[in-house]
């Protein structure tokens, strides 16, 4: 099954539980800076905008990877072969939605793997601002 993640900023509470769940689900403890999605916030303007991978097809990030480390899976989401990644940031540079960023260590991109079909971020969103669309 393939799906896309849909973000609805108009009902996002800006709590960033999604970011926390992402790092936890990937075995990286509680660390929003290691999340594959980001809630862009502007407290003054009252903006809370979840920025999520759109699982583009074809995917510019995958096409830009010179090492063949970033792949698209049958389900449509991304898979990174850590050992092959050369941390060149080409994938980050070409993402049209600014949805792909580097790990804070700079060693690899934080590519959304869709949690294998059951995204942790969607599971913890209590307002419904993140949804799966098949």
């Amino acid at each position: 099954m393939s799906f896309v993640l849909r973000a609805r900023p108009e009902i996002c509470s800006g709590c960033r539980a999604c970011q926390l769940a992402c790092s936890e689900a990937h075995g990286e403890g509680f660390n929003p800076s290691r999340s594959r999605l980001v809630v862009a916030k502007d407290d003054v303007g009252g903006v809370d905008q979840p920025i999520v991978c759109r699982f583009c097809d074809p995917a510019p990030c995958v096409n830009a990877c010179p090492a063949g480390a970033l792949l698209k899976t049958a389900g449509g989401w991304l898979s990174l072969r850590d050992g092959d990644c050369v941390a060149c940031r080409a994938c980050v540079a070409v993402c049209p939605f600014d949805a792909l960023k580097m790990d804070p260590s700079g060693s690899r991109p934080l590519a959304c793997d869709g949690c294998g079909g059951h995204p942790a971020c969607v599971g913890v969103c209590v307002t419904g601002a993140l949804e799966i669309e098949s």
């Binding site: 108009e10 009902i11 996002c12 509470s13 800006g14 709590c15 960033r16 539980a17 926390l20 009252g46 809370d48 913890v124 209590v126 307002t127």
Partner: peptide
Amino acid sequence: KLRSKGCFACSIPCSRY
């Protein structure tokens, strides 16, 4: 009220914009 707002990782977004 425009929408609910929440503190960090809270499942009760009890604040309001």
